[in-house]
Design a protein around this nucleic acid. Structure first.
Length: 908
RNA sequence: AGGCCCGUAGCUCAGUUGGUCCAGAGCGCUUCCUUGACACGGAAGAGGUCGAUGGUUCGAAUCCAUUCGGGCCUACCA
């Protein structure tokens, strides 16, 4: 076997294997032909924005996905992890606009076509940054199937979906109030508006009622919109205003007569009970306006500047206009109140600009029919969501859902497949550009300029990436995807939309029955769902639990962490901290600790190689069996199987933290700390056969442990695994060999118990030595009283181990608790004394014993209390009572011993 | 306004259906050890009445209520 470099340096190793995996196309998956009987595991990568660069959130998500993917692959699943990137409409357009502005150019000057060309150019140049980074992380995706949401085939599918929905009457076009970002100059969906509580004002304005001396007072947070008022509403039941029904008011500043209407919009309890109605600038007012046939007067343009309808305020920015309107109202005596008022201000998710409700022509999806099926799929258990609380959040949202505005006034994106006829203004929706108008026959048709919401196309990915709308073998095999792993921040944006679209467009789809059964999903009824299981992961925050964001400057760059600690250690950190439900505060100190773990593995491997080289060069795991020759063999084999069980079970429950920590504890705490120490004499044995057998076990176990760890730490495990085989490995990569499996029946409880006693004894002696301040190199004799003969036999059989690991000269077995200078330790099973001249620190020892006695007394007292409680005896399960009795017996023995010791030392 | 989550050792977090994993892990800290895999190491330690109060129970960090503190999501009340 080859010599590993003395110190563990992840950088070079990782880059090499990352490159190897991609070059060898290890994770490319040919479509299995009919007749395939293996289970299939499909996972779609949530496509990062092309504009993105890898942040901790990506790495966290990808680590979990890669663990699941590698785990399934090693367990024999045909495993497809499908990567791609998202064109990210607004984000990308912003990026390129910024680039242009550096050159002193503007998007509109360039024109649409040229601009789009620029974006593509940008994409060609920078678009692979994030996928390159993914490669470095070792993400075991199928790069041969990589997609981009603007690829021609995906774009065609988008058009197909749009046209079908339109034909089904699920897409409509109309003039409605939408959330409008004046900065991005586009409509955005409800989800893209982030509400922020801010301290604002509520202004009260009085409008003179025509033909009376009265005024009617309304309240508003956006006084500038009063310029577009077309009515004042009061509640029909409101006694205060009954006499004004049917009258008109004179709108101040604009001197326009507008009616007083009665509408439920006005709630008597709020404010003055009268409300101004501005149908063009508020969704509620819009609805009220529809009910009363009110005119819609828009007073702002797409930049949120006042327009011609605002009369003297035209061309003012909305906030300047606000100031001026207020000043004028004040001056003319109409402003009668100003109150502090906290309001939830809507801001554009992308750029933070305050969103303005705006009346405009947009395209919408009629969401109810889609949502109903999407809700049923989850309610009926066809899709499972973990953690469970997200299930309810999802269902709530699906139940209270509004129509989805899908059109965007952007240039970068999937253009809406609709054309308007210059002649008759007819709008034609079609898969390809129509030659002439179906209504008037005119041939001057122009495509609608809007593009689709980015999430429209990403919502289709589970089936469009598999070839839809064609009926492909890929769809038969890989649809539904087995799993979706994503963050709750895009639960509604993406996950919900995928479910809606999948359930709608894949209705009637049947997955290959044999594969479905083999994959363990045979009992599922509905194959239209985009995926069968969803795991929602938490968010990564910085060490102070703050959301990482560029503006805060607290972004932890994963590449920096990787450079310093290695990808494996970083992955391990993320996995170990991935307890579901809670966000993780990324802490470097943990990563440092796990780099130490990697280093430990590295050095354990060096130890193995050193021995194999000496004892039996050329020994490889595929040529050996594990033979249980001793207690430590039985023990470690059982512990390995226990760990295997724990890891497999943890992973099937998405408990990445449990999985990672189980392996950690096993490898370091048991395999390295105890097993390696215990077998050293055998490895060094003069007897070649003994040494060879020990070596074989070592290699066997190491190989198995590497496979167990591989999904979490793919690089170091690959490096060592390949080294074990010296280039003659049975497979190209450890990623392609079998994952350890175990059975509860294989657990050797006896071996584990015996070993625990042995460890207990060794630790006790070490403890005594430390207390007695015995020179580390000095061997001391011990006296040992063992209560049960069977245990005495175990210790006798392993006396060499005790002598070596506890640095003991000789074990003398005695027939009763050894008396003497008090350098002893007692457990329920044995009493051990170290024979050593040095005086012990009497005060300290007394202190320790007293503390111990106190603890024992406490335990005994509480135990007695319970055992004398008839209710407890009657109601508690038998096993609990028995265990408690057993424990009480042990405690009593220990108390006796401790008291004896205290007396012996004459402690006060 | 409604809903959700969190509050356990100095720090970051585990703690499965309430009982012997009522207290764990990593880092940090203390003492000792440069013994041929590893000082990114080894050995031995110190450290928490599980936010607060009340309740359910034979028994609660674990269930319920209230309360305080921190975070998040959803919401068209002018």
């Amino acid at each position: 076997m080859p010599e590993l470099s003395k110190s563990y340096e992840p950088g070079a190793i990782e880059a090499r294997w990352a490159e190897f995996w991609v070059r060898e196309k290890l994770f490319s998956v040919p479509t299995p032909p009919p007749g395939e009987t293996r289970p299939v595991f499909t996972l779609l990568l949530p496509p990062p924005n092309v504009t993105g660069s890898l942040h901790m959130g990506h790495m966290f998500e990808q680590t979990q996905m890669d663990i699941m993917v590698r785990w399934h692959r090693m367990r024999g699943f045909v495993t497809l992890w499908l990567p791609g990137t998202d064109h990210a409409g607004i984000a990308t357009q912003l990026m390129v606009e910024r680039q242009l502005s550096k050159e002193g150019k503007k998007r509109r000057e360039l024109g649409r076509e040229k601009f789009i060309e620029r974006v593509w150019e940008w994409k060609r140049q920078y678009g692979s940054a994030i996928t390159d980074q993914m490669k470095r992380l070792g993400a075991s995706v199928d790069w041969d199937r990589e997609y981009f949401t603007m690829d021609e085939n995906l774009s065609r599918a988008v058009r197909e979906v749009f046209v079908r929905l339109y034909e089904e009457g699920l897409i409509y076009r109309g003039k409605y109030i939408v959330n409008w970002c004046p900065r991005c100059e586009t409509a955005i969906s409800d989800l893209e508006v982030k509400h922020e509580e801010v301290a604002g004002k509520l202004w009260e304005i009085r409008y003179p009622v025509i033909g009376t001396k009265e005024f009617i007072t309304v309240a508003t947070t956006r006084p500038e919109t009063m310029l577009g008022d077309t009515a004042v509403a009061v509640n029909e039941k409101d006694e205060r205003y009954k006499h004004l029904h049917g009258k008109k008011v004179l709108l101040p500043l604009m001197n326009r007569e507008i009616p007083i209407i009665t509408d439920e919009l006005a709630q008597p309890e709020f404010g003055t009970g009268a409300v101004k109605v501005t149908p063009a600038h508020d969704p509620n007012d819009f609805a009220a306006g529809k009910r009363h046939n009110l005119p819609q007067i828009a007073v702002m343009d797409e930049h949120a500047r006042m327009n011609q309808n605002a009369g003297p305020y035209a061309n003012l920015d909305r906030y300047e206009a606000r100031k001026l309107v207020l000043a004028d109202l004040q001056e003319q005596g109409f402003l009668v109140g100003e109150k502090n008022h906290t309001l939830a201000l809507g801001k554009c998710d992308r750029c933070g600009t305050v969103v303005e409700p705006r009346l405009s022509e947009q395209w919408f999806i009629k969401i109810k029919p889609l949502a109903d099926r999407a809700r049923e799929a989850v309610e009926g258990g066809e899709i499972t969501i973990v953690p469970d609380n997200y299930r309810q959040i999802y269902l709530n949202w699906m139940t209270n859902i509004y129509d989805w505005c899908i059109s965007r006034q952007l240039w970068w994106g999937h253009r809406i497949p609709a054309w308007s006829c210059e002649g008759c203004k007819e709008v034609i929706v079609a898969r390809e550009a129509p030659a002439r108008c179906g209504k008037c026959g005119g041939s001057k048709l122009e495509q609608v300029s809007d593009v689709l919401d980015t999430w429209f196309s990403s919502g289709l990915l589970p089936f469009t990436t598999l070839g839809w709308p064609e009926k492909t073998r890929d769809l038969d095999v890989f649809y539904p995807n087995m799993l979706m792993i994503t963050g709750f921040d895009i639960l509604f944006f993406w996950l919900a939309r995928m479910i809606m679209f999948g359930c709608h467009f894949m209705q009637g789809h049947k997955q290959d029955a044999a594969i479905k059964r083999a994959s363990g999903e045979g009992d599922k009824k509905d194959d239209s769902v985009p995926f069968r299981h969803v795991y929602i992961h938490a968010l990564v925050r910085d060490a102070d639990r703050q959301k990482m964001s560029k503006t805060k400057g607290n972004v932890v760059d994963p590449l920096d962490i990787i450079r310093r600690f290695g990808t494996d250690a970083t992955r391990f950190t993320l996995a170990a901290m991935a307890a579901p439900g809670t966000d993780i505060a990324f802490s470097e100190s943990r990563t440092e600790g796990y780099r130490a773990f990697a280093n430990k593995i590295w050095n354990a491997a060096r130890f193995m190689f050193m021995n194999v080289e000496r004892v039996e060069p050329g020994l490889t795991p595929d040529k050996v069996q594990f033979t249980e020759q001793s207690l430590e063999d039985r023990w470690i084999h059982s512990r390995f199987r226990g760990t295997t069980l724990a890891v497999n079970s943890a992973l099937s429950n998405y408990r990445f933290d449990h999985a990672a920590l189980s392996i950690y504890d096993f490898f370091w705490g048991e395999f390295c700390d105890w097993y390696l120490e215990l077998i050293k004499p055998r490895l060094a044995s003069e007897n070649r056969a003994t040494a060879a057998m020990a070596c074989a076990n070592l290699v066997y176990l190491f190989d198995a442990a590497l496979r167990l760890l591989h999904p979490v730490m793919p690089f170091i495990t690959e490096e060592i695994w390949q080294a074990i085989y010296e280039g003659k490995a049975p497979q190209k990569s450890v990623a392609l060999v079998g994952y350890p499996q175990a059975d509860q029946k294989q657990i050797d409880l006896a071996a584990e118990t015996e070993m625990a006693i042995l460890q207990d004894l060794i630790v006790s002696v070490r403890n005594l030595r430390a207390e007695l301040k015995v020179e580390p190199k000095e061997k001391v004799p011990i006296q040992l009283f063992v209560h049960e003969p069977a245990i005495r036999t175990v210790i006798e059989q392993n006396r060499n181990a005790v002598e070596r690991l506890a640095n003991v000269e000789a074990i003398v077995f005695v027939d009763q608790t050894p008396a003497g200078k008090g350098a002893g330790r007692s457990t329920a099973r044995f009493d051990v004394h170290v024979i050593y001249e040095a005086k012990i620190d009497l005060t300290a020892e007394c202190e320790r014993l007293k503390k111990e006695l106190e603890k024992l007394e406490k335990g005994i007292a509480s135990g007695q209390r319970q055992l004398s409680n008839e209710q407890f005896l009657a109601k508690a399960p038998q096993s609990v009572v028995e265990n408690l009795r057993k424990q009480q017996l042990e405690l009593a023995i220990l108390r006796e011993k401790t008291e004896g010791k205290l007396k012996e030392l004459s402690c006060v």
